[in-house]
Amino acid sequence: MFGKCNNPHGHGHNYRLEVTVAGEPDPVTGMVLDLKELKEILQREVMQRMDHRFLNYEVAELKGKIPTCENIAQVIWELLDPKIKQGRLHRVRLYESADLFADCYRNGAAG
């Protein structure tokens, strides 16, 4: 089923995460949300948890799950969604490689 992805000591990827937030630009600042704030959220919720970590063992949210691109993307969505107060999380796209990615959308929302 998993081919060489099943090798016992694991393997790594340089993941790339794309986060899209949708909403009305604030009439004063012209921003949907403050990029600095988004950056802090991403740093705290995703980078500190996952960057240079062994996803199978070190990320509590992935316990009991196979760290496929689909599952990691969903965990990231669930971590970010409650933290984004201005605008709404529209899409999380996680690239495992240049040729493979998973997209998460809010259920019921158009892609």
Partner: peptide
């Protein structure tokens, strides 16, 4: 609610 997930794959 909940999340809808898509898998994307590139070919050349």
């Amino acid at each position: 609610m909940g999340v809808r997930i898509e898998l994307g794959r590139r070919y050349r």
